[in-house]
Design a protein around this nucleic acid. Structure first.
Lengths: 114, 114
DNA sequence: TGCTTATATAACTATATAATTATATAATAA
DNA sequence: TTATTATATAATTATATAGTTATATAAGCA
């Protein structure tokens, strides 16, 4: 989680897009791959996710067959990244998709509880 | 001054060190070259400075034979960079040298006015 | 167990970055 | 004008990055 790693991680537009897509909810690797299908292959995304994790910008948790990734808030770098994702006009579309996905996830949970 | 250029500019440790060295005062290209002599050649530093300027992180002004560079505050990116330079423990030594240089420059000006 | 799905890693290729030395430009001084 | 100083650019080389396809691992299901 050195400054070197953080800045290197942020120096990639695809990685910044992934961060924007995670801004409102965590996602599985597969969901991220689906979102960026046609732009990038699964291995490319897997690599980006490991760079982001290695920089301490996202957390990673294996749940059964899936691996969930989410923004690491609670660190200075994480907070700043989150702030930038919130503020940046160019990330707005992905931000909205992220919010929509978050809504679906919550709806799903509510349904489960019925 | 796109996000791409800003993040690319910040992705280099030498460039971040140059920003830290500019944190308290502007400097001529020559002063920066002197500071990093033995680590980097003059052309390398010239290139870094043009990357930083192109990203909108520093301003550049030719005064006679010299070219002065300084942090571009007054932009979101510039403000954040300045904040990071202020906060980052690793940039503290360069920050102090920058403050010392600032002191010398002000002393010089005071002397000029006598 | 064997099959399928989800994710990661390996090997490879193309391109980009960063550094160097050598040289050009532009301003000042003699 | 010629020489000197300050800075930038060009050509080159070494290394790093980002992407690809192919393959491995690991979990869940029949």
């Amino acid at each position: 989680m050195s400054a070197d790693k953080i800045f290197e991680a942020l120096a990639s537009a695809p990685r910044r897009r992934i961060l924007a897509y995670l801004s409102k909810t965590d996602m599985t690797a597969g969901e991220i791959v689906q979102r960026f299908a046609g732009m990038m292959t699964q291995p490319a995304i897997s690599k980006h996710l490991s760079v982001l994790e290695n920089a301490g910008l996202v957390w990673r948790e294996k749940r059964g067959q899936n691996v969930h990734y989410g923004l690491n808030e609670g660190t200075l770098a994480g907070s700043l990244v989150h702030f930038l994702a919130e503020v940046c006009p160019r990330s707005r579309p992905l931000r909205r998709e992220s919010a929509e996905a978050a809504g679906r996830k919550n709806a799903g949970k509510a349904k489960d509880k019925r």
